[in-house]
Write a protein that binds this DNA or RNA. Structure first.
Length: 419
RNA sequence: GUGGGUAUAGCUCAGUUGGUUAGAGUGCCUGGUUGUGGCCCAGGAGGUCGUGGGUUCAAAUCCCACUACUCACCCCA
């Protein structure tokens, strides 16, 4: 029985709901196009090593959530747990850094996999839309990325969203902050939760993110990164805020926003929703100036984000946003009797040549049942074909919205005039 | 990995202190005359009551285990 179910944490997109995905896809393509982002597609699998180096060995994603296996050639392969590492690998492997910069790419409906306990808004396989902006160190690049996300969300009419923003510094200034933070945490070490004791050693920034009450108490009075940023990081953030203000993008500065991927530098941001349960992040990203080098390329600054498609759909559902359902059939050809059935089939063929969407009877229903079926599948018009119509070479074109019937000659072009 | 909740028709759910052929709404099929949808009316099909054990004369109902789903922690999109 279990064999015939989709694996835990995965979901089918059923035929009746795929239009929602297509709607988002079209909207997204229209937006990124205006910014000049080009689509890139990378493999679902990568060498495990890429994520160890890219995402970071101490992260939860790498330590306990990856789908890793050995292939028949004894290579360690991993289903991608996030979108950025693969794109960076592509960027480096194909020497795209050698082209004129910047390089602006996006990915759409990119499947990513994490072995986690499923819950509201969290799947083991989900799909991301994301943007990666290489070779641009200026804050305008950060601002464009955020703008792509907020424009999308705004165009969809999303409400209850918050843009959280922070800077976590760069390799020049972060060590100072690390030292200060560790110094502070050391005096509270015994009160930290068990995982935070480990974080203290491996990645003290993450203690700020801890949800345990005691740790939150401690974090509240911890030194703030903003006080330790170097001039360059400070100026970068100031410029970003200025540009966001100029676009009227609302944001909240959150000094404790720390993301679970190791590659970020300077800007980090997250967009959360208050309507989709506790897994509230719809979009997350930031700057990663050191990652290209880490993956074996030259020093190339970059910034990007990932946005969860399933969560975006959840937001739309929960705020009652209706996605327009496309018309499936223009015409349904009801027919009875062998001659009319055959004529209906060929007429449908002619209609399709003219670009119309049309359906006929494939199961031998009565005329009454065919009308009912035409109504159910949302056909705009119905034509009933029987011996009478074949003789006269004329039939009634029935408009389903109001039932009005008009006589038409049995010629595809002529009928098309009337719809 | 840790907790809580749920499991009865395709779907959403009833099912009284254990009691005889397990129900409703919706969906599906058919019919309400001879070739015309929506509304209405009538009829029909459809259920190993998640699985396996136990208690009992008797279990959808009580007990245990397992599984699945779900929500939350954790983490993240």
């Amino acid at each position: 029985m279990a064999v015939y179910k989709a694996p835990k944490g995965t979901k089918d997109v059923l035929p009746e709901q795929s239009y929602q995905w297509q709607y988002l896809e079209a909207l997204i393509r229209g937006i990124v196009r205006k910014y000049g982002f080009l689509e890139a597609r990378t493999p679902v699998i990568e060498h495990t090593e890429l994520f160890l180096r890219g995402v970071g060995e101490t992260t939860d994603i790498v330590q306990k959530e990856m789908y890793t296996f050995e292939d028949k050639g004894s290579r360690s392969i991993t289903l991608k747990p996030e979108g950025t590492a693969g794109i960076v690998r592509m960027f480096v492997e194909n020497n795209l850094f050698g082209d004129t910069q910047p390089t602006k790419v996006f990915y759409l409906n990119n499947p990513v996999f994490r072995y986690e306990r499923p819950q509201a808004g969290r799947l083991r396989e989900h799909h991301q839309f994301g943007v990666e902006f290489f070779g641009a160190s200026k804050a305008s690049a950060d601002a464009e990325c955020i703008s792509v996300a907020t424009e999308l969300l705004n165009q969809l009419g999303c409400t209850g969203l918050t843009v959280h923003l922070n800077s976590i510094g760069c390799p020049k200034c972060r060590p100072n902050y690390h030292a200060a933070l560790k110094g502070y945490l050391k005096s509270h070490y015994d009160d930290l939760c068990e995982t935070c004791k480990v974080r203290y050693e491996q990645n003290p920034l993450r203690v700020l993110d801890c949800k345990v009450e005691k740790c939150k108490e401690i974090a509240k009075d911890a030194p703030v990164i903003g006080d330790y940023l170097c001039d360059e990081c400070k100026e970068h953030q100031a410029m970003l805020l200025k540009l966001l203000d100029g676009m009227d993008v609302r944001y909240e500065l959150n000094p404790r926003l720390v993301r679970g991927l190791d590659y970020y530098t300077k800007t980090v941001f997250e967009i959360t929703s208050d309507s989709i349960g506790s897994q509230s992040a719809v979009c997350g990203g930031g700057r990663y100036d050191g990652l290209v080098e880490e993956i074996g390329g030259p020093h190339v600054p970059a910034v990007g984000f990932g946005l969860g498609m399933e969560r975006l759909l959840l937001v739309l559902e929960n705020i009652g946003k209706e996605i327009p359902k496309p018309i499936r059939y223009d015409v349904y050809l009801a027919s009875m009797g062998d001659a009319a059935n055959e004529r209906a089939f060929l007429l449908a063929h002619e209609f399709r040549d003219l670009g119309l969407c049309v359906e006929i009877d494939h199961v031998g229903r009565s005329v009454k049942a065919q009308l009912k079926y035409a109504d159910k599948i949302g056909a705009k018009y119905v034509i009933v074909l029987g011996d009478n119509e074949l003789e006269k070479g004329e039939a009634m074109l029935k408009r389903m919205s109001d039932g009005e019937q008009t006589p038409v000659a049995l010629k595809a072009e002529a009928i098309k005039e009337n719809i």
